[in-house]
């Protein structure tokens, strides 16, 4: 065997895949050729170095980071944003399940259900999720949503009250809409999910209805 042939066998030797005859020839060559001997030693050291590499500990920040990202993704899917061809319109109906119904102020409630109003959606984007938020009263729900809208640089452009409840028209930078949706639904980790369509618009607007249910 010469040095070139040794080189050809080297990788298979590292992988422990030589036949007995090949090992014999291989060993005979490295016994008499110093440079190949040196190379074989180096190969074994490399192999040892690599096989001993220990799995590093995962830093707490990394552990927390992906879990948070997954939870957010789960919520984001749940709250699906909808785009129409021309303008991106997201309609959320927040239904307030009321224990009792009052007219003056929003009633005391034990939950808000969030569901898509599919009437205004493009045909191919229908679907979505429902969630429940635990809030104590309709007023609290309203002020919590108002705060949340402001926090995500949104503007409440309309505020109407009808027999179904109170409807807010909100516009918001598109970049913030996902996080807003996530924040809105953050109290319900168990909701079902769907895919989020993308939009090219910079601002999304949507209606948020706090409706009164019996």
């Amino acid at each position: 065997m010469n040095c070139e042939q040794m080189q050809e066998l080297l990788d298979r030797a590292i992988d422990q895949e030589l036949t007995e005859a090949e090992w014999k020839a291989f060993n005979a060559h490295i016994a008499e050729c110093p440079s190949c001997h040196e190379e074989w030693e180096a190969a074994q050291e490399v192999r040892a170095f690599l096989s001993q590499a220990e799995l590093p500990e995962v830093p707490q920040a990394a552990k927390d980071g992906w879990r948070l990202a997954v939870r957010r993704d789960a919520r984001r899917k749940m709250m699906t944003r909808i785009t129409a061809a021309a303008a991106a319109v997201l309609v959320l109906t927040v239904g307030v399940t009321a224990a009792t119904r009052k007219t003056e102020s929003m009633p005391a409630i034990h939950g808000i259900s969030v569901e898509m109003d599919s009437a205004d959606l493009a045909p191919n984007t229908a679907m979505v999720a429902s969630a429940r938020m635990s809030v104590v009263s309709g007023e609290e729900a309203y002020s919590a949503i108002e705060d949340l809208v402001a926090e995500y640089d949104g503007v409440i452009e309309g505020d109407t009250v009808d027999t179904y409840g109170r409807t807010l028209t909100v516009s918001m930078p598109k970049a913030n809409a996902d996080d807003f949706s996530a924040a809105l639904s953050s109290v319900d980790p168990e909701a079902s999910i769907g895919e989020i369509p993308e939009t090219d618009e910079e601002t999304v607007s949507f209606a948020l209805t706090l409706s009164i249910a019996e």
């Binding site: 590093p56 995962v58 879990r67 993704d73």
Partner: peptide, 23 residues
Amino acid sequence: RGDSSAFSVLMAAHERQMYGVCL
């Protein structure tokens, strides 16, 4: 089915190997 808590438990067994790959 979308249960992110179950996912967390499931992946806890793999995160060290995955982090090793990333590092």
